[in-house]
Design a binder for these strands. Structure first.
Lengths: 225, 225
DNA sequence: CCGGTATTCTAGAATTCAATTGATTACTTA
DNA sequence: TAAGTAATCAATTGAATTCTAGAATACCGG
């Protein structure tokens, strides 16, 4: 089945394998999680709400497609993205969806846009506001994800704790929230909550992995690795 | 199956659908063909060496994924790429393969590199040589593909006719050959043949669709459309 | 309106894929 | 070395995909 006479078809066969590896919602979710930081199978399974055996199988498929790599540390196996170019591939996929799929456009309209009628803040714009100390940067991912790396000076309040920890945020300046990526619901949720409490809140247009891949400054608390 | 409570998962479900549409070698082949010009199902089937019913099914799947669009003209249905961003998506897929898949690297080594030990010519470099009239540009695709659009001043000799039409190429200057895309075998084949006949021959790094998408000048003989 | 052509639809067989369950491996530490 | 933890493997089931073949549809030109 894989012994092709035509080298072009053989090449397409290989690339199709990569595409099929992207062809399952759980694997895209797993890629997003692994894109945050090097992560153990157990944590991935928990965050993606799937069984560990299932997560392991998905990760192996992603590894065979050259999308993630793994290394063993003690009893854990840590997975991470093979490359920053994987993020470009995911971005291209998103772009097609947004441009050409009615279902995606409707999803954006009916869920995401409703939650955030204002324009998101671009990376460059946020960097400028950070330099001028005009902004509180809020990371609404989990503690572990935050510890492994975050935007410079960011405050970490996981979104499910936001309601009872609002007092940690200064009301004197605007807040820009971010999370795992472009359509991670956490930052939408956070911005909606903050606005309803009177904050001037915005959302970063994408998440931590894209910020880091763009070569912008990051901080870390020395989490895993 | 598609009624997701979690909007993030619903989004991933949609994007996975796009990825699965790319997940078959024949569909990647079909995309490459459709990327040359607006093309009827019959022609696509013939060039991809698959049955017409099968081509029709693949095309419908690509359309549902927002990768191609179609319109009816007379009794024919003409398909074309939905977007130039589809080319970016394919390029990103290729990039992952080249970087991270041993099978792809080996395929490149064992077939493509062997046929073309010299570096390919970039678009910008070829454009410069065209301006300075230092080069014969050779299009080795089919007549129909050529007629629908080609590089400015290019000569069309389909690769299977090259051997007996060598006299149409001036020996006074170098030849740069191109075809459908990065790993289209035609241009490799052509360069190998030309070099063995004493020509100074090179390959363009990618094909006609990428040239056109980059906004560079093209010509057409007023083919379909 | 009819015959011919291009395409799509339908049904069915072979293949691949996804998720679960329970067993197994590899490693750590008590 | 034994117990425990993290991950993978193996086998199964049901679902989705792929391709073929033949039927059905849509449209053109006469």
């Amino acid at each position: 089945m894989s012994s092709q006479i035509n080298p072009s078809l053989a090449m397409f066969e290989q690339l199709a394998k990569v595409a099929r590896a992207l062809g399952h919602p759980h694997r895209l979710m797993v890629l997003q999680l692994v894109g945050q930081s090097e992560t153990a199978v157990e944590d991935i399974a928990a965050r993606a709400a799937i069984s560990m055996a299932n997560a392991s199988q998905h990760l192996q498929r992603l590894r065979q497609a050259g999308l993630v790599t793994s290394r063993k540390q003690g009893q854990k196996v840590l997975y991470r993205l093979a490359d920053d170019t994987v993020l470009s591939l995911l971005a291209a996929l998103r772009d097609i969806g947004e441009r050409n799929l009615a279902d995606v456009q409707q999803l954006i309209q009916s869920y995401f846009r409703q939650r955030d009628s204002l324009e998101p803040v671009s990376r460059a714009e946020l960097a400028r506001r950070i330099r001028h100390r005009q902004v509180t940067v809020l990371d609404v991912r989990s503690e572990q994800e935050f510890a492994a790396g975050h935007l410079p000076g960011a405050i970490n309040i996981p979104v499910n704790e936001l309601r009872r920890r609002l007092n940690e945020l200064p009301r004197s300046q605007q807040v820009v929230a971010y999370c795992r990526g472009a359509y991670c619901v956490f930052s939408y949720e956070a911005v909606a909550q903050l606005r309803s409490r009177g904050f001037e809140a915005y959302r970063l247009e994408d998440g931590y992995p894209e910020w880091k891949a763009a070569g912008m400054a990051v901080e870390s608390d020395g989490g895993p690795v």
